[in-house]
Nucleic acid binder design. Structure first.
Lengths: 342, 342
DNA sequence: CTGAAAGCGCTAACAG
DNA sequence: CTGTTAGCGCTTTCAG
């Protein structure tokens, strides 16, 4: 345990070649399962490699073959709960394709996104999956010039670089507004995060306001937060907004986590949900299953998005490059227990 | 958008060299900020590179320089909430070192861990940060022979390969038992996950039982789950165990998420917490801030663990390899509102 | 079925 | 301050 870390030269194909008495080339063939090799030599090589503990050098391999089995996946955050879900579906879908996802996180910063993208592209991945349609001009240029399949995910409201898989957040917001109005709510508040770079949340809000406007309604109040535990923030914000505007009869949250916090607060206060006030979030987190009262939400199709994106990359990296495609998924309203039945 | 993805040859140093009329070597120097280059040529090169949209090929660079600025980070899961936190602290700490974390996920499977490790080592990273001390013999051998700094994190109960940063889960469990007994609870149940490969949860349980045994107490009942929303499972399991063994006066959960589910259920049922029954979880998730009644928990030092691990890797990749170190952090009991005051 | 030769795109090391 | 020369460890291609 306190043995010094040795600075041994890593083993090379040549070492295996010498140990097995087989040419480097043939060793390489065995290790990659490429081409025909007699069972005898195959055994010899495999045994030598294992005995030595040889680990191939993919850097050299990639340089020689001009092929890298990596897919860059660029997302804004890991603490959002939404993205791990997308990641795991990408990862599952890529499982048997020989492709490996590599994750980069941007913290919702366009500059960071640009850096991360540059860094990842410099490893010449086979494809890029990146959240959102909004990028810096430089980032967009990199994506356009990379010469590899690019899939922008989560959002379809805008112009993509290549392929796009997602939902329309604008329409998601709009539909939620319609459902709320249909249920008879009229004094409606919105609670969300301050992040100006969360374009999807912004689009949902815009669509939501558009939906209200169609019914001649305006948002009665809004409340924004930044940082901290989302559940706790949801609780605080709900108290704040209801103190300020007590006659609100509906609260639309920009995500399920703050929505759940708000729900907990309302239940603690003994407020009649959904009678006195209705609540809704966004995402369809399965965390909501754990509450006795189910928050209304809208399923963001996260699993499906990851799957399709991965399929596009996997498909394209085989069949030589066709045009980009746009796949729009349909988010589903899950009314739960926090919207009155109409 | 439906423009075909072009299969353009990526640009090389030579292209920049020709465009700027400067030798490849000097272009390389400029792009890496290495060695002295006159301001004039520097400008010329930078301008040419930018105009062309050149992205360096790190594969070739790494092969030539025998240096890779990547740190492999291998964790069991991303949906656990614990690991994203560790990740982000690693990521923050590495920020200004020129090192980049690359994440691999094992789903708590030793075989998958072995595969992921092999895959990552084949990219010759500058270091490895890996969760846990339990690995397959092959994985352990790879770590020992990689010739790079290795930090095993989260757990110190066992023998490490090189450096180790974590807490003693055994003692964490033991201390929790002591606190519970000191508070006067006697009929104690344990609720956890079924995963046999979650060694840290197992060690907590063992330490916990050891602590109870010291007071001449045995676990009165246990309940395990697998899969699904942890919050919902916590709710269900709590109901189940209390139906089966109604006289339990304390429930120890193997993580905060199921603990929070149990807490919600108890509150819904109008059960007096912590009077009639006490509850405790593990991890110190900030999610708990969002509840009106704070679940007792134990801070697992996740941020600190990530930070220290990253420091070790960063420090060692500079100063040429010293011996491994073992850093044991001290988890802190956060009694919250769900343990009676003694 | 097996081997030899020629790079992949970059950087270390040395010379000017 | 700038350029030249050799590879890094592998795979592609072509000959046996």
């Amino acid at each position: 345990m306190s043995r010094p870390t040795e600075t041994r030269r890593p083993l090379t194909l040549r070492d295996v070649s010498e140990a097995s008495g087989v040419s480097e080339m043939t060793v390489s063939r065995v290790l990659r399962n490429r081409g025909d090799v007699s069972e005898t030599t195959r055994e010899k090589v495999l045994q030598a490699a294992k005995a030595l503990g040889y680990v191939p050098n993919k850097i050299a391999g990639a340089l020689a073959s001009q092929r890298v089995n990596l897919v860059a996946v660029i997302i804004p955050s890991l603490s959002n709960l939404v993205f791990p879900k997308v990641l795991s579906s990408i990862s599952d879908e890529l499982e048997d394709t020989g492709l490996q996802p590599v994750v980069g996180v941007t913290n919702y910063s366009p500059e960071k996104e640009e850096q991360v993208l540059y860094e990842m592209l410099s490893w010449r991945p086979s494809g890029v999956i990146i959240a959102g349609l909004e990028h810096t001009p430089a980032a967009r240029a990199m994506l356009e010039n990379a010469g590899i399949p690019v899939v922008e995910i989560m959002d379809v409201d805008g112009e993509g670089v290549d392929s796009v898989v997602g939902i329309s957040h604008r329409r998601a917001g709009l539909h939620m507004a319609e459902a709320i109005i249909a249920a008879g709510y009229r004094r409606i508040g919105f609670l969300g995060s301050k992040m100006p770079e969360d374009h999807r949340a912004r689009k949902r809000l815009e669509g939501f306001q558009e939906g209200l406007a169609k019914a001649g309604i305006e948002l009665a109040d809004t409340e924004f937060y930044a940082g901290g535990s989302a559940l706790a923030k949801g609780r605080e914000m709900t108290e704040t907004i209801l103190k300020r505007t007590p006659d609100l009869d509906f609260l639309y949250y920009s995500n399920d986590m703050i929505g759940a916090g708000g729900l907990l607060w309302c239940l603690d206060q003994g407020i009649d949900v959904p009678g006195r006030i209705g609540l809704a979030g966004f995402n369809g987190l399965d965390l909501l299953d754990g509450f006795s009262v189910r928050l209304a939400t809208m399923n963001a199709c996260r699993g499906e998005i990851g799957r399709k994106a991965a399929q596009i990359i996997a498909g394209r990296s085989q069949s030589n490059m066709i045009g980009g495609e746009v796949i729009e998924l349909e988010p589903v309203l899950e009314p739960g227990d926090t919207i009155r039945k109409a």
